[in-house]
Design a protein around this nucleic acid. Structure first.
Lengths: 340, 340
DNA sequence: GATTAGCACTCAACGGCAGTGAGTGCTAAG
DNA sequence: CTTAGCACTCACTGCCGTTGAGTGCTAATC
């Protein structure tokens, strides 16, 4: 169908267009690359590629630029995941080297990834699925208000304020805390949710009212927080690449501020052979991101899938470099979190 | 110096320019407003205003636009803090009505303020100065790693991971936790820092090594987190108003992603008579924000100053509305947090 | 002395127009 | 299958005259 050389032509079109932002023509191809054939031959190949809708012409007589489909083929078959430079590797080591708490690690990670790729970087908070309850702390803030703090063995801390209907004393809070910890500590998240739901009955009768509200909150804390949060950095990069968008980038920025959209998108992305998956252009149309590409990889801890890290940018991006960066950062993050 | 009517002219120039984005000329002023004088008279007034550098001409023969100094005068003397509409008040009530934990309240607040003003909204986390230690939880994550969770009476939770040099057992962690809580609970933040520093000596000798590291971390937690964090929303609005910036908004976006800059700016802003202060144009030049205006107000709890909320946008913004919105949100937030 | 009418002047914005050049598509020959 | 040649397309650029909003100035008027 499409000859070997035609694919090679597609590759250089993608590469040249990405680096120059200008539609690439047959003549400039033979000038810049040694195909050993004439411009006319390249033109024939290009006609073929156009037939297949892998490239398109912005105007009748201008160079060609890759279509969504062209980028897709490039990503799937033509791009080599260019290994990171020594400087980039070094940046990862030093940037993430001094670990602190989870928030800190993730916020460093997202800034790092944004710098490596010059795109918007995204890091999803780890799922709690595999975590177990380490400790539950109840703090009495006032007569009718408690703070419930859930601590997992992976070092994640979840807090909620609980408004109680009846008044609570320090003693009853202490009793409740003891009861809760006796019941939940050591359980996995899903088990803990079930156990928490049953807490109210097991509690001393005079605490039943408060206990049921606290139990309800605990169930929420345990269940609702499965990787429903993400951090973002490098929004400024979207502006830098604004010319790559046909319209305004306003709706794009709006969409990515709405984290729910990105979380759904992450959820739908499958892992491909390299561990990095790409979602290109129209493939993201249902998320209002039809003019962007999203690259992502999942990071792991103890072998179980945790969550995703990725980048978002215009179609016209350096896929080779960015996919490599996403992969490297995901791997490094897995290693770092695996240490716990 | 400048006559009463000249100031009135400045006011309508600011108002018309803000709403139309077009340089405003003498003729359009007499058309749109009933000054009862001719265009030529207005022109004389405008010449005066130009002399005072309150307005300037983009091109020799075009309408006039306000200068930084003009906006400043407008904000200080000419703008009435237009009260919020019923719909806006309603939005505040319903949006912030169902309170949950602090993170949640602040994230709602920032999104609300961004919607009310159509600008980038900023909310600084409350300072810990006035808070007291409610509880310290130590969790043993592994043989050489602890999680330290500091809970204040205001419901704020601070966490840190501590790497210990020597191995720690569950028992020693429990001992340490008891010792720490006995020492710190009930103290104000500054006192707690002092007390924490002395913890290492008071600890049982076999724990001295670990205790000193934990104490160090606690001091950090107590001191370092004074309002050093902020949340942001509505970055997309900057793009919407991109035409109001002479160059690219790229550096602006970069600057506001660097939260440190904004925190320093907040720190330098004084509270004016209305409780809302403004920093306009070049006044922000040292922060790389010379083409933006920042409005902010502090919110309070129990009468002590806590932190700031504000908005950032182009010079050309609706100061009356935005200052009123900032004030209203700050007040509402004070009320909400004062309940604790 | 402030206000106004009148007028010359400035200058960005717009549209039309021809020239330029990169690039294509096609055809016929190698 | 490849290539040279050629006509054609079309965005882009610079040029130019027109238009119109708006100013600044001066002299007359209230």
């Amino acid at each position: 169908m499409v000859s070997e050389r035609s694919l090679e032509v597609l590759r250089v079109i993608v590469q040249d267009y990405v680096s120059s932002r200008e539609p690439v023509g047959s003549k400039s191809i033979v000038e810049r690359h040694s195909f050993g054939v004439s411009a006319a031959t390249i033109r024939n190949d290009m006609a073929l590629l156009e037939e297949e809708e892998l490239i398109a012409a912005p105007h009748t007589s201008s160079g060609r630029i890759p279509t969504d489909k062209g980028y897709r083929l490039f990503v799937d078959q033509l791009s080599d995941l260019r290994p990171l430079s020594a400087a980039q590797r070094h940046a990862i080591e030093t940037f993430l080297g001094q670990s602190a708490d989870l928030d800190d690690v993730l916020s460093r990670t997202v800034r790092l990834l944004s710098q490596l790729t010059h795109q918007v970087a995204l890091v999803q908070y780890p799922s709690l699925t595999r975590a177990t309850v380490k400790h539950v702390e109840l703090v009495r803030l006032s007569t009718h208000r408690l703070l419930s703090v859930l601590i997992t063995d992976t070092g994640r801390v979840e807090q909620r304020v609980v408004d109680t209907t009846s008044e609570v004393t320090e003693e009853s809070v202490a009793d409740l805390r003891t009861a809760i910890n006796a019941t939940l500590v050591g359980l996995g998240m899903t088990d803990a949710a079930t156990a928490a739901a049953g807490l109210a009955e097991a509690a001393p009768p005079q605490l039943a009212g408060v206990a049921s509200i606290v139990a309800e909150t605990l169930v929420e804390q345990v269940l609702a927080n499965r990787a429903d949060k993400l951090v973002m950095a490098g929004a400024a990069n979207l502006v830098r690449t604004e010319e790559d968008f046909t319209g305004s980038i306003f709706p794009v920025l709006e969409a990515i501020e709405e984290q729910v959209v990105l979380l759904r998108l992450f959820g739908e992305m499958a892992t491909d052979q390299h561990g990095v998956s790409a979602s290109i252009g129209r493939e993201n149309a249902s998320f209002g991101l039809g003019e962007t590409s999203v690259l992502s990889s999942s990071y792991l801890s103890a072998g179980s899938e945790l969550a995703r890290v990725g980048v978002l940018g215009p179609l016209r991006m350096d896929y080779s470099n960015n996919m490599a960066a996403v992969r490297a950062v995901a791997r490094y993050l897995s290693r770092l979190l695996g240490e716990n």
